[in-house]
Design a protein around this nucleic acid. Structure first.
Length: 537
DNA sequence: TTCTCGTTGTAAAG
DNA sequence: CTTTACAACGAGAA
């Protein structure tokens, strides 16, 4: 467009220079280019009532990661003769105001499939089209456009990974050259405002009190992302032989996976560039692992969840969610709190929850263990509760992927073999028989002999005394007996599944209430008859 | 309608 | 170290 000489690049995710079609389009033929990021106070401001340091929605680790990513983006833009303008306020209001004030002719941003951004984009697009502003929104966060896949499948998202792969095929850009190297950007025009500033610090946002606290070892930003990518890719052998289920969840000094997920979440790393880098390695080695456990397949899983999430109303809740089994989860706040605060009494579970809180990242198998334990494995707490805590604490928490995984792990969708339960004691033992991971994240157990470290409540009192850790005083007793709790969970799931089948997926709230009552009655009956048996024995 | 198969279970047995 | 019983689900294909 000839008249589009003043452009605005709206950064949300996609915090990178490389493979950024929206940025590229924004700078093409523009006299001035305004690159902006809008800080939504709702996302960033401290919330004193939150269950961990951070805002109402995000833990401090992720806020810090985002700020680091913004600082890095600003530096990169400066090298290209531009800079990042950081604004504050409700994003659509702030944006529309700037479109007017700067007389923008071309608005560019990366397409985002999340409901939050979909709603936001409608507001902004409505204004833009009324004002005659050209809007360019590029699909570059994921490998595929979720709409394309859903369309190919007759309007419904595929519900199994295999059918997703068939529909997806090779990405259209697989063998084309992505724009990685960057050229100089048009200058920022006259900004004429003073309410924006440099990227704020954690302290400026009001988190001064937490500066000394242990925080995530992973630093945000595109530079860091590309450095990490190089490190992973340079080890061709490792890339070629990667098998996700064989990774060690207890490895924390050198994690078993790439830890590129937080960079993908914020778009510091382009998933498409990552994909091409892995393919390059595959071309140069004799053989490599194949689906669905290979490294490149991990990226496709992310797209799978994005696709289903985009095509499923109420994807992030049980009620009204077409693909989610209706299950009478309990609402036990105390059980939830023991899990959240790492005091379930199962060291493997608690250590993972400590790492999650401190680092904002844990290995995916560790996520499986604690998610299973909270929901269908032991505590039978609603998956939405666990999802909320993950969403808050993870630096890589991604709406589609996080919700998808909780649906999976709780046997609410995608995966239904509820008999397969991760043992909170023996699963970790397989990888880390000495319990080094537990000793590191739960120092109170650091002197517990390895024979007892996964089940410290079974240690004789003399051993507990020697280890300076009395169970029930220094470290909690287990909150449930895994054997009986998991058995009870299986029974409830069997009943809930039967109800869902019987009602053909149309389970009402009353049906669920009735089932909950029935399960309680059965439980009372069971314990009564057990007492009876004990009496007669 | 029936069949196959599913990214990542456990414990016991061979 | 590998195989098997456990108990059994749903999506998608045939």
């Amino acid at each position: 467009m000839e008249t589009a000489s003043v452009s605005l690049m709206w950064f949300r995710k996609g915090l990178r220079i490389h493979d950024n079609p929206a940025l590229e389009y924004a700078s093409k033929g523009s006299k001035f280019l305004y690159p902006i990021f809008v800080i939504d106070p709702h996302y960033m401001e401290p919330d004193p009532r939150a269950s961990s340091p951070g805002s109402i929605r995000a833990g401090l680790n992720r806020i810090r990661f985002l700020l680091e990513s913004l600082v890095d983006l600003d530096l990169s833009l400066k090298k290209l003769g531009s800079r990042l303008l950081v604004l504050k306020g409700e994003p659509s209001e702030v944006l529309i105001q700037r479109l007017k004030e700067w007389d923008i002719k071309k608005l560019c941003f990366e397409f985002d499939a999340e409901p939050y951004y979909q709603a936001l984009d409608i507001k902004v697009k409505n204004y833009a089209s009324a004002a005659g502003i050209e809007v360019f929104s590029a699909v570059s966060h994921t490998l595929f456009n979720p709409s394309d896949i859903i369309q190919k499948n007759g309007g419904k998202p595929p519900l199994s990974y295999q059918s997703f792969l068939k529909l997806a095929g090779e990405p259209t850009w697989a063998s084309s050259t992505l724009s990685i190297a960057s050229s100089l950007l048009p200058p920022v025009g006259d900004v004429r405002i003073n309410e924006f500033s440099e990227v704020p610090t954690i302290k400026e946002l009001g988190y001064g009190d937490y500066e000394q606290e242990e925080s995530t070892p992973f630093k945000g930003g595109e530079s860091e992302a590309l450095k990490r990518l190089r490190e992973s890719i340079n080890n061709k052998e490792w890339v070629a032989n990667f098998e996700k289920p064989k990774g060690d969840p207890s490895a924390y000094i050198k994690p078993a996976t790439t830890v590129l997920s937080p960079y993908l979440k914020f778009g510091c790393l382009s998933s498409r560039y990552f994909y091409q880098c892995i393919q390059d390695v595959y071309k140069n080695v004799k053989k490599h692992t194949s689906p669905p456990v290979s490294l490149v397949e991990q990226l496709l899983w992310r797209d799978f969840y994005y696709t289903v999430a985009f095509g499923t109303p109420y994807f992030d809740q049980m009620k009204g969610n077409r693909i989610c089994k209706q299950i009478p989860w309990n609402d036990d706040e105390e059980l939830l709190a023991t899990w959240r605060e790492a005091r379930t009494g199962f060291p493997w579970i608690d250590a993972i929850m400590v790492q999650l809180r401190k680092w904002g990242w844990v290995h995916h198998l560790a996520r499986h263990c604690v998610a299973c334990f909270l929901t269908r494995g032991d505590l039978f707490v609603h998956w939405e509760k666990g999802r909320d805590i993950f969403q808050r604490l993870l630096i890589d928490s991604d709406w589609a992927v996080n919700n998808g995984n909780w649906l999976w792990l709780s046997c609410s969708s995608f995966f239904y073999q509820y008999n397969r339960i991760y043992s909170p004691t023996s699963f970790g033992k397989k990888y880390d028989p000495n319990g080094n991971y537990i000793r590191n994240f739960l120092p109170v157990l650091k002197d517990m002999p390895k024979e007892y470290i996964y089940e410290p409540w079974t240690a004789p009192l003399s051993i507990q005394t020697q280890a300076k850790c009395i169970i029930g005083r220094d470290y909690p007793k287990p909150v449930v007996c895994h054997g009986s709790a998991s058995k009870e969970c299986k029974r409830r799931l069997a009943e809930a599944y039967a109800l869902n089948r019987q009602m053909n997926g149309q389970v009402s709230e009353e049906d669920l209430r009735n089932l909950r009552r029935k399960l309680e009655d059965d439980k009372d009956q069971e314990s009564k008859s057990r007492r009876q048996r004990q009496k007669t024995d």
